[in-house]
Amino acid sequence: MSEPVIKVLIVEDDNLISKRYQMILSKDPQLEFVGRAASGYEGTMLAALHRPDVILMDIELEDKQAGLRATSEILAYMPDIKIVMLTVCETDDTVFRAFELGATNYLLKNMPAEEIRTAVKDAYRGVPSLHANIAGKITREFKRIKTNEDSLLRNFHILTQLTPTELEVLDLLLKDYSRQEICRMRHVEPSTLKSQIHSILKKFEKISVQEVVAVLRELHIPEILAQRKGSLPLRTE
C-alpha cells in the first residue's frame, strides 16, 4: 500500500523562507504544498479552507505571539491538524507554551531540509521528534514550573502559620513601609516589632526581611493575597 499524501500549509510572513519550505516539500512526493499564509489570521482562514494535515507555523508573524494565537484557534476547532512551530530564536517559555497549546513539533528555521521533511511526517503520525536543544528547553521549563509550584505551596503553608498580627506586619513590609512607619501605624514599640519580625523570619527560615519579601513577590503572593484577602486559615495568637 502506498503512503498517503500529506497536505501541508505554510504560515510564514517571510517570502524567501516560505519559498524555501515550498521547495523542500516539493522534493518529496509524499508531501503536498496546499497554500501559504503571511499572518496568523490568514493562517486560520486557510486552515479552515484547505484542512491541511500539517501546518508549518511561524511564531512571530504580525506580532510576537501571533503564531501561538493562531495555533490555539486552529486546534480549538480543528484538533486533528498537526502543527509544527517554526522560529529563529526560541526561548524556554515560548517552546513550552507552544506544546502546551497542542503543537506536535518545534523546528528552528535553519534546520536541514531532510530534518524538516522528517519533522512534517513525524507530526502527521503524531510523533514529536524533538531536536535535542528543544527537548532540553522543555525539560528545563518543566523543572522550573515544578520548583515554583513546590515553593508556592511551601510559602502558602508558612503564611497559614502566621498569626493575624504577623500577617499584618508582613503585609506592611511588602508594601515597603519602614519599621519606624510600621511602629507608628500599629502603635507599638520598636522592640515589639522587632520580636514580631524575628518570629516571621524564623517561620520562613530566612535571615532578613528582604529575602522574605523577594521570595513572596517572585511568586506573586501579594497579588494573590489581595485578591483573596481573609481567605487564609490563620492561626490565632
Rank of each mutant, 00 (worst) to 15 (best):
K143W: 13
L172R: 12
D80E: 07
A135M: 08
R179A: 01
E62N: 01
E115C: 07
K202R: 14
S2Q: 03
N105S: 05
D53N: 09
V188D: 02
T139E: 15
C89E: 10
R228K: 08
V212N: 00
K137S: 15
N105V: 01
K27T: 00
Q180F: 12
A98P: 12
E237W: 15
G136I: 07
D80M: 01
A76N: 15
L31Q: 04
G35M: 12
D93M: 12
L152A: 02
V54P: 12
L61E: 06
E168D: 10
L232V: 07
V95I: 08
S195V: 03
Y41R: 11
T236D: 11
M111W: 01
K121H: 04
T91K: 15
D14W: 09
Y124I: 00
P4E: 06
E205D: 15
L173R: 06
T94E: 13
L159W: 04
K143M: 12
G40Y: 05
L31F: 06
I17H: 09
H220K: 03
K27H: 03
Y77K: 13
L68K: 12
K121F: 06
E189M: 11
V8L: 04
R228G: 09
R36Q: 11
A135T: 00
S2W: 00
E100K: 14
V209H: 01
S231D: 09
M111E: 14
T165A: 15
E60T: 13
L153F: 15
F204K: 08
P222Y: 01
A103H: 07
V188Q: 08
A103Q: 08
K203E: 07
E166Q: 15
P29L: 14
E218A: 08
E237F: 10
R125M: 07
L162S: 01
Y177S: 03
V215N: 09
N110H: 11
L86M: 10
D28N: 15
A47K: 07
M85I: 14
L225E: 00
A98R: 09
K64Y: 15
T236R: 06
M85V: 08
Y106E: 08
V8K: 00
L68P: 09
V34M: 08
L75A: 04
E12P: 00
K203Q: 02
L107G: 12
K175M: 13
T91V: 10
F142V: 04
S151C: 14
V209D: 09
L170E: 04
C183K: 07
R69A: 11
H131W: 05
K19E: 13
